[in-house]
Design a binder for these strands. Structure first.
Lengths: 205, 205, 205, 205
DNA sequence: AATGAATGAGTTTTCATTCAT
DNA sequence: AATGAATGAAAACTCATTCAT
């Protein structure tokens, strides 16, 4: 017979997570303090430690949630694409969308987690792998279907694509004009598929 | 009338900066302490504040110097490229080279440059612009020379390219295998120039 | 009108005390937490405060119980001794036995009983008196029976004996080799009765 | 060219140590706070960490100093004793003296250090060994000189003696009357040398 | 000019105790 | 009666920054 309902516990948990998401995203991990988060969640500092082991755990949970959410959103949409270019377009436009909607969280991920020394082997890396494997599969299938140059290294494509998206959304963060997602996604897909060269299919450099 | 010669002041300034670069790169900005830096520069903590306003200022100067170094290294080399693809290859391989040569500094750059740059105006943002303008010019010239599809947005290319390079560097930092710079630079150039599609130059999507 | 039977209340009280004894003994007073004790007693944190005033009260009760147990065990056994030396031997060996049987509790006792006892009046101090009075009586009877030097201060004997026992127990706790209780008790009795000197009963110093 | 003189640093160090000695002795290790100590030494909390690594280090230094002081006082005095009983008397009376003068420190030692899990092998244990070895040597020499029963275990004597002294001084702490050191030391020596029995040198039990 | 001792606000984290449920 | 969520004060420790020397 719990003193408060499981629902209320769940709400608290979510409230803390939401507060942490906001505070971390706005100030960065090390600048944000537990007190800030507690205040944002309208609870005491101590209570956070009833729900999370420590500050780091809180950060990781925030990012895991984020990843889970975007993966869940993305996977079904990718499946609908017919051709390699279609699937690529969906991936790019969805990914861009997320990055732009949650720019602060993305920045948090880039600046605090990827660089952490304990990143390798972490739950976050697992999620990251799962996420990027979506693209690797698209490329593999593109090769299998004869739509993509054989021998293309999917990891190269992954780096180019995710790097490109990150940079574009970052420009959005610091820039004045909002990004026209469909237009940019279209253009990015086109460059990746057809290249920059006026006459494609010359001998490969 | 300074009690220390301007030259010696200059040397000191450089020594502090070199120490800060090393210490920040090794430990990250918030983990590194002023005392660490002072010790590395073989001076007292207090003296740092005669040369720099505060810790943040020190970080920004470190990052500015790094940018300046990259730019200075790169500009003359680019000029030598004959074709669009040549110039692109030089840019990619040089940039990759710099990032990979100093993984610690590269990690610092990735994790701090964004936060540092929206802190006031800022000098970093300007350097970033100057750096990326090198690429913008390459693309513009490629269009002018008829080597690149007309109407291509150079900023898109910029985002794709620098994002790709950054991601690749990051893979290098966190990955197990070292990156084979010439091979990756070659492949990246190729994808950008010719695209992923088996048959290039089909109608643009 | 209690909603819980007095018997069940009593059981609960004992269960809490048993849990506290174990937890305090294992971790020490200040390291142990109320939550640890509650968990060990399989009840909630809050309920402890229905039975005990606070953490300190709990410690004191634990120590009191331990004292009571030692005394209850000891008194009947002492009565059996025929001579002064016999009774002394029984006291020493029983006391050593108790301390060594539960090294954790013994450690707790040594490190906390003094602090606990000058905290108010106190019950512990009274128990201590009662306990040591057992020995005082033995000495008094020894004098009365002509077995012990007349004029010997029983409090001196008390201090020497209990100090010796405590120190020996401590050596047991921290030492590598277990203490051979009968042998040590025998030797200690012998020294107390006959002294260290090769030729006893010379003129008293 | 230090900003403050070495003398002042030394004074500060000593002041912190003196404050810590007092605060630890009065309140016990875990009850005492760094803030208490800092306040007692009339400095800021942070400065303590410039002189000592952490709270534990401070405690250990306090106790090491104490030990060093009493050992330095004791050793020359012991040397003057002619017979076993003389030397024993000196040891007892000096030791009692110290315990009574620094009762709080002794209690601190008993309750906080001896019971610590990292006691074995520590610097404090070394000092403790050195201190008790003084007595061990006295006993060994007593045996060699034919003054002490052969086969007597010096460690037994050590435990009895130090335990006795500890207990006696503890009685002083809690008791009302001051201890008459020469009288008690005399009596304790006598018991140890000649035993409690009216007729010594009966067959050993 | 140069030092580094000193500060003190700030950090994360723990936990005895209370009280709404 | 019993719970355990919630509190909030306190803990040890860190460190950018200042300033007397």
């Amino acid at each position: 017979m719990p003193a408060i309902s499981p629902q209320r516990m769940r709400d608290r948990y979510d409230a803390i997570l939401a507060a942490a998401t906001r505070v971390f995203a706005e100030n960065g991990y090390s600048t944000a303090s537990i007190t800030d988060i507690a205040r944002a969640a309208d609870i005491s500092d101590g209570l956070i430690y009833k729900y999370f082991e420590n500050k780091r755990d809180l950060l990781e949970t925030v990012l895991e949630r984020f990843y889970e959410r975007i993966i869940a959103d993305l996977e079904p949409k990718i499946a609908k694409g017919r051709t390699f270019a279609d699937r690529l377009y969906v991936l790019i436009s969805e990914h861009l969308h997320v990055f732009i909607a949650d720019r602060d969280l993305c920045r948090l991920f880039i600046s605090e987690v990827r660089t952490a020394s304990d990143y390798r082997g972490s739950a976050i890396q697992q999620l990251n792998r799962r996420y990027t494997s979506i693209l690797l599969k698209i490329v593999d299938q593109g090769i299998a279907d004869g739509e993509v140059v054989a021998g293309m290294d999917p990891r190269l494509v992954r780096d180019m694509l995710f790097g490109a998206i990150e940079h574009t959304s970052w420009r959005h963060i610091n820039g004045s004009k909002p990004v026209d997602v469909p237009r940019v996604a279209r253009a990015m897909t086109d460059v990746l598929v057809n290249g920059l060269a006026l006459r494609g299919r010359r001998k490969r450099t």
